[in-house]
């Protein structure tokens, strides 16, 4: 492989990684846009969802690397797994909101954020104490296909990630821009008080944001499991932190910002690892984040200046 070939291959790697971060980052951004709350529970909603996706596939008799499906059987079982995982993750998100965050609505400061840290700890330990700390051999019904495009190898799995991410993001875009509820969400994100006065049911909007964000985290979790054939109780932290960084980099509260931020973080991670060293990945990511925030305090796509006003 030539130097350019390697870099292109790292770009392919980065785009796959970035697509997952983007899906996860949207969850942070949706909730932040409406409640101005950084939802640390999202880290481990993602983790729990990866297990739910695994159990859904196992329910269909697909476990480990043993069964490879094609055609309709593949589409059907993946469809089932996506629906179950996204719905379950969405419900978990809604339950978290109802039980631990709604009573805190209107309480200023850091109370909400600290609560979500607590919820995150609870989810983490529930999985640790029930499932255990081992690594899971994630079901993999996908056939292996590779395409050699010049010096770059693209795998079927990667194409699947991009396709699913694009479909979900397009769906979200249509939902937010076309539907009544989606418009209400945007209005609430702009100005919650005005939206409330105009008759927007803010509670419903908040629940929707949590459901959608968590469902997208569910999709990201299933993609994650299928791509790496792996899950474990620890996956929430690093993935969540990267996605949160992506959301902030893009301008937290902005949906396009989360998408672009996710892809950027994915690319920074792979290209940084290639050109510098993997051991410095986090240092590179956070240095870039600080630099961006110093010069563009609202993030790349942020709306408001991030100083209190």
């Amino acid at each position: 492989m030539t130097e350019t070939g390697v870099l292109l291959q790292q770009v392919v790697n980065g785009l796959s990684l970035g697509a997952m971060y983007a899906l996860l980052a949207i969850g942070f951004t949706l909730v932040y846009g409406i409640l101005e709350l950084i939802n640390f529970a999202h880290f481990n909603v993602f983790m729990v969802a990866s297990f739910i996706g695994m159990w859904a596939l196992q329910l269909l008799g697909i476990s480990g690397q043993s069964r490879v499906l094609t055609g309709l059987a593949l589409a059907g079982s993946l469809g089932f797994a996506f629906v179950v995982t996204m719905a379950a993750a969405g419900v978990i998100g809604v339950v978290i909101e109802r039980v631990s965050l709604r009573p805190l609505r209107g309480v200023g400061g850091t109370a909400g954020m600290i609560t979500t840290i607590g919820v995150s700890y609870i989810l983490f330990n529930v999985i640790l104490l029930t499932v255990g700390a081992g690594s899971e051999n994630y079901p993999n019904p996908l056939p292996v296909h590779r395409w050699q495009l010049g010096q770059v190898v693209v795998e079927l799995k990667e194409v699947l990630i991009w396709a699913v991410s694009l479909i979900l993001m397009a769906g979200l875009h249509i939902f937010v821009s076309r539907t009544r509820l989606g418009k209400a969400m945007r209005a609430t994100a702009q100005d919650a008080e005005a939206a409330r006065m105009m008759g927007v049911d803010v509670d419903r909007v908040v629940v929707t944001a949590f459901f959608l964000g968590s469902a997208l985290a569910g999709a990201a979790a299933l993609i994650f499991g299928l791509y790496y054939n792996y899950t474990s109780f620890i996956i929430g932290y690093t993935a969540g932190l990267r996605a949160l960084t992506a959301a902030v980099l893009g301008g937290i509260g902005s949906i396009p910002g989360a998408m672009v931020g996710g892809l950027l973080i994915g690319l920074i991670e792979t290209l940084g690892g290639q050109l510098i060293a993997v051991r410095w990945t986090d240092v590179i990511i956070f240095s870039i984040l600080v630099l961006v925030l110093v010069f563009v305090p609202a993030g790349l796509f942020g709306r408001a200046a991030p100083t209190k006003s």
Partner: peptide
């Protein structure tokens, strides 16, 4: 010095990053 001008939530993420680094 460069980060304290940021709003609280942004500061939280940046400090988190410093804690990682």
């Amino acid at each position: 010095a460069p980060t304290l001008r940021l709003k609280g939530d942004y500061l939280a993420i940046v400090t988190l990053g410093f804690g990682e680094i």
